[in-house]
Design a protein around this nucleic acid. Structure first.
Length: 505
RNA sequence: GCCGCGUUGGUCAAGGGGUUAAGACGCCUCCCUUUCACGGAGGAAUCACGGGUUCGAAUCCCGUACGUGGUACCA
């Protein structure tokens, strides 16, 4: 078997959503598992939908996810160029070849004529008539016109497209790596445009030509492409490349709460659908990304991998390395999977717990600094991270849980204390401060022992006093053990926080 | 409408002729903790429906329903 070569071919029309990232991921995992090449090629054939900056955005997302292409427009490679707009001329050659071999034909119909045909053929049973064998003889094309008429139209530079001539009564079938045998009747498929009037190929011609010239061995794409598979199969055959045709796998769709996951679902249900923030330069509309929402790339990749794939064991947490080792296309589920944001957050929580301090440090510093907290002492920060990471689900949670070690709380939840607050307790805390001043070594046990023995002496239950102390130090009902906090923030800060808090109760 | 693909708890899913039908998320109860989490122990909840084949069907076959995708000079 020749070396595995697999490609991801995004269209730079803005944003990279969950389904897109999962398609890349499965391509990448398959390539790496078999020691092959992972190629990124850009399908920028539709000038009207092309968005500035979208291509760079795609590569930024891949980089964040930890996916490095072996060949791409930015990296180059032996089959350059990797942008379809830069390969424009080669596609025409293949299209003309097909016309010459009578597998395709020129069509001169204008937009208005096409609309007219669709309008006239429209019935209740057939709401969307196709340009197919039923109508092609009635349209303006090189099949219905004489060769002289065609020649003169061509000479006059009449705009035209090249369409594939679908055979009438054939059954086309192929084996999908995920779904098995699939077949189609050609009479039901329309004559797809291969080369547009502007000289650009459509997706159909472009994928086949590019997959062939770039020696792609396995073609994986979303399930939405399944209906056009017969077109591609036929092109491989008509172009004479049947022996080199890649193996196919059509990946299941990722669904939103209702239907195929869309950008709108994110806004509507409050979860990100793109890998990273994307702001559309034309509308300035911002679509939130998983990165900015506070997801770790490890968690993002992990949750995507197990959405529609399972290795048959009970394992759910996988690093990229483990995924490469365990992944296999035949264990990809056939049905579409609904995206569950709650579970997505669980994965991030698990990865925050799983990662060590080094893996978290940079992210935490970034979170804190965006909240206006600068970290001076990194070894101190490391202790804090170790102490609080179990309670953080999303990265911004570190602001609440780690922030209190760097900054005196601004507002105290006094309501939690006031009802049971009295003179005795005020006295207790004043004396506790005095005792703390005298502590020789500022250690957890000391701080706690002084607290407990003073409470016994005053005949107050320690439990009655712990909540107030927590509010004093933290500001609210959250965070690690109180005495651990006291130990970490130090004697001076602890006493200061207690004293200022007493004033407020 | 037509064509393709699908259907195991609310969600992700294992299981592919004989199982008490795994596991995870979420939800509920309890324990731990006099905070919030983490952790631990339990619980509720599932084979879309109808026919076949078979001693036996979640599993194989056929229908139906439902879902979803396609039906563009978009990808």
């Amino acid at each position: 078997m020749s070396k595995v070569r697999v490609r991801f071919a995004p269209s730079p029309t803005g944003g990279l959503h969950l389904g897109g990232v999962r398609t890349v991921l499965f391509n990448y995992l398959f390539a790496k598992k078999h020691g092959g090449d992972f190629i990124v090629r850009i399908e920028d054939t539709d000038q009207t939908r092309f968005v500035d900056g979208a291509e760079q955005y795609i590569f930024d997302c891949l980089k964040w996810c930890g996916i490095e292409p072996d060949e791409s427009p930015v990296k180059g490679g032996p089959y350059a160029p990797y942008r379809q707009s830069e390969r424009k001329e080669s596609y025409r050659k293949y299209a003309e070849q097909l016309v010459k071999d009578s597998f395709a034909y020129y069509a001169f119909d204008t937009k208005e004529e096409l609309e007219k045909m669709r309008e006239e053929c429209k019935t209740a049973e057939n709401p969307s008539p196709q340009y197919d064998h039923h109508v092609r003889s009635k349209m303006k094309n090189s099949l219905s016109l004489t060769s002289a008429e065609v020649k003169s139209l061509l000479d006059e530079n009449t705009p035209y497209v090249i369409r594939l001539k679908m055979p009438e009564n054939e059954v086309i079938s192929f084996t999908d790596m995920i779904r098995g045998e699939i077949s189609f009747e050609t009479s039901l498929v329309d004559d797809k445009v291969l080369l547009k009037a502007d000289g650009m190929p459509t997706y159909h011609l472009a994928v086949v030509a590019d997959d062939y010239t770039m020696k792609i061995t396995h073609a994986f794409r979303g399930e939405e492409w399944l209906p056009s598979a017969p077109v591609h199969l036929l092109l491989w055959k008509y172009l004479g490349w049947e022996k080199e045709m890649p193996e196919w796998a059509h990946l299941p769709l990722i669904m939103g709460p209702n239907g195929k996951l869309s950008k709108r679902d994110g806004a509507k249900f409050g979860f990100p659908v793109f890998a990273m923030n994307w702001s559309d330069p034309r509308t300035n509309e911002l679509t939130e990304g998983f990165k900015e929402k506070g997801f770790l790339p490890e968690a993002f990749i992990n949750l995507l991998a197990v959405l529609g794939w399972n290795d048959g064991t009970e394992q759910e947490l996988y690093s990229m390395e483990e995924l490469i080792k365990h992944f296999s296309m035949d264990r990809v589920h056939v049905a579409g999977a609904k995206f569950d944001y709650e579970k997505a957050k669980w994965f991030n929580h698990e990865w925050i717990k799983k990662l060590n301090v080094e893996g978290l440090r940079l992210n935490v510093i970034e979170q804190l600094s965006s909240a206006g907290i600068t970290v001076a002492d990194e070894t101190f920060l490391d202790k804090v991270i170790e102490l609080v990471k179990d309670r953080c689900t999303l990265l911004p949670d570190f602001v609440q849980h780690a922030g209190l070690f760097f900054k005196t709380p601004e507002a105290l939840d006094t309501e939690a204390v006031k009802p049971k607050w009295n003179e005795e307790k005020v006295k207790f805390f004043e004396e506790y401060c005095q005792s703390l001043e005298k502590i020789s070594s500022w250690e957890l046990l000391e701080i706690e022992n002084v607290f407990k023995s003073l409470a016994t002496e005053k005949n107050i239950k320690p439990g009655e006093l712990q909540l107030p102390l927590r509010i004093m130090l933290v500001g609210g009902k959250f965070g690690p053990a109180v005495f651990q906090i006291a130990e970490l923030i130090g004697k001076e800060e602890t006493i200061k926080r207690i004293k200022t808090a007493i004033q407020q109760f």
